[in-house]
């Protein structure tokens, strides 16, 4: 498989700097070329591996493109109905408080049909991690308008562009949950460049560590692409995302624990 061209002396186990984690099952991902789901799966798996949590983790997979997520990470899984993942995770964490529990949901799952479950889990401060993939579109069902579709953005159910007079404006769920006292750490990241992948991975690692503190919900939005749904090449879609998605969904922390940044903490009662 390798294209060894006289570099056999470099390709030796002792020189290995990057290899896919064993927490990935090895199944070929079901995603389109260039899709950020795969990258997010991998960094999530890497964190679970590096933190030694494979035997302690229960994941809840959604309905959407990542419905088969349970095929790709070698951990225990529960597959939820569309939008209900935070309800499952609530019960899992309350019944097994020592385990690491997370949900992984897309924008249709989390910000449309599962809005109530998401907001109330965050409001109760369920001690879980929620990963929210926002690519502004329903990918699996063929590119329909999502609650996060940008104004004027075309989709199969907004073929002339999202008309905000008719359909309202994109829902910024991450901003909403950041205002709730129940959330402990809320951040918005992306995985389209090496630097962003590293930052996103760091955010996931923080959320994993915060869960041990038992202080509330950690919510990580990943602003991502959908080359097929947006009808672009993967590289074009990443550029389009930078130019159009990021101004509306700016990257960075929306809420950080007081210990890390006393000025930014908006939630003093949660941090005794």
């Amino acid at each position: 498989m390798s294209q060894a061209t006289g570099i056999k002396e470099i390709i030796k186990p002792e020189n290995l700097v990057y290899k896919k984690t064993k927490v990935m099952t090895g199944k070929v991902l079901s995603y389109c070329p260039g899709c950020g789901h795969g990258t997010t799966h991998r960094i999530l798996a890497e964190v679970i591996d590096e933190e030694g949590l494979q035997s302690e983790t229960i994941g809840v997979s959604p309905v959407g493109c990542s419905v088969l997520l349970y095929e790709f990470l070698d951990i225990d899984w529960q597959e939820a109905a569309h939008g209900r993942a935070p309800a499952l995770a609530t019960a899992i964490k309350r019944l097994l408080p020592e385990k690491f529990v997370f949900t992984y949901q897309g924008d249709g799952d989390l910000a449309a049909i599962g809005t109530a479950e998401t907001i109330h889990a965050c409001n109760r401060g369920e001690n879980i991690m929620i990963i929210f993939i926002n690519n502004g579109i329903y990918g699996m069902t063929g590119g329909q308008m999502a609650p996060t579709t940008l104004p004027g953005m075309k989709s199969s159910t907004s073929p002339y562009g999202r008309d905000v007079k008719m359909m309202g404006n994109p829902l910024k769920m991450t901003d909403i949950v950041a205002t709730l006292p129940g959330t402990y750490y809320v951040t918005r990241q992306s995985v389209h460049t090496p630097a962003n992948v590293k930052k996103a991975k760091k955010a996931i690692r923080k959320a994993v560590q915060y869960q041990k503190l038992n202080r509330g919900t950690c919510f990580i939005e990943i602003v991502s692409n959908c080359p097929s749904g947006w009808k672009m090449t993967p590289v074009e879609s990443n550029k389009w995302m930078e130019a159009n998605m990021f101004p509306y969904y700016p990257l960075g922390d929306l809420k950080v624990p007081a210990e890390e940044n006393p000025q930014k903490q908006t939630n003093p009662e949660k941090n005794d």
Partner: peptide
């Protein structure tokens, strides 16, 4: 950045 994790680096 590889979405499919197909690259190993030395």
């Amino acid at each position: 950045v590889c979405p499919d994790g197909v690259i190993t680096v030395y």
